[in-house]
C-alpha cells in the first residue's frame, strides 16, 4: 500500500509528510521530520518520554499513528520556547536543577505545561499523579515536582 500523505500543524507550522500505517507519530517526528526532542523510552505508553500535545490533548506520541494526524495540531518540546524566550517551566527546570540526565525532561515539560494550562494551582499530589506517566529514574521526582509547583506560583503571580 502506498504511503499516507498527511498534513498537520506542527508547532504552529503547516507540515506535510509521508508515512506508512505502522509508523507512529513519534516515528514520524523523529525519523521523518528530524525532531528528536521527543524520546522513545518504551514504545508502549509506559514512560511518557514521547509526550506531545495533539489537538490540545496530552498523549504519548508512540501510541498515535502518523496516519491519524491528518488535519491535527501537534505541539512537541521543540515548540515550547517562544523564540529566544524559554517557557517559564523550562527556565524553572534549569534554575532548580529539575533534570539530571535529561532524557525524560522533554516529556515531563510537555506534560507539566499541559497541567498548568488546565490547573494553575495544583497541589503536590495533583502534580505527582498528573506526572505519574512520566518516568524519571534520576531525580526521585523531588525537584521536578517542586519546579512545577514553583512555576505555577510564578505564573499566578504569588509572592514567594
Amino acid at each position: 500500500m502506498a504511503k499516507h500523505h498527511i498534513s498537520m500543524t506542527l508547532n504552529g507550522e503547516p507540515t506535510e509528510f509521508l508515512c506508512s500505517t505502522r509508523q507512529t507519530l513519534l516515528d514520524v517526528l523523529r525519523d521523518e521530520l528530524n525532531l528528536t526532542g521527543s524520546k522513545e523510552g518504551c514504545a508502549s505508553g509506559d514512560c511518557g518520554a514521547c509526550s506531545v500535545m495533539v489537538d490540545d490533548r496530552l498523549v504519548c506520541s508512540c501510541l498515535v499513528l502518523g496516519a491519524e494526524c491528518d488535519g491535527k495540531t501537534v505541539e512537541s518540546i521543540e515548540g515550547m520556547a517562544d523564540g529566544e524566550n524559554l517557557h517559564p517551566l523550562q527556565q524553572k527546570f534549569l534554575e532548580e536543577a529539575a533534570l539530571q540526565c535529561g532524557i525524560c525532561t522533554p516529556g515531563v515539560l510537555v506534560a507539566a505545561k499541559a497541567l498548568l494550562e488546565k490547573n494553575n494551582n495544583p497541589t503536590e499530589t495533583e502534580v505527582r499523579y498528573w506526572l505519574a506517566g512520566n518516568l524519571c529514574r534520576c531525580t526521585g521526582y523531588d525537584k521536578i515536582v517542586r519546579a512545577v509547583m514553583s512555576t505555577a506560583a510564578d505564573m499566578r503571580g504569588d509572592a514567594k
Binding site: R30, L35, T36, G37, S38, K39, E40, S76, I77, E78, M80, A81, L86, Q90, F93, L94, L99, G102, I103, T105, P106, L109
Partner: peptide
C-alpha cells in the same frame, strides 16, 4: 541545560 529543556540535546538514538 538549555539543550536539554528544548529538545536539542542529542542522546544515543538521536
Amino acid at each position: 541545560g538549555h539543550d536539554k529543556v528544548t529538545g536539542r540535546a542529542k542522546f544515543g538514538s538521536d
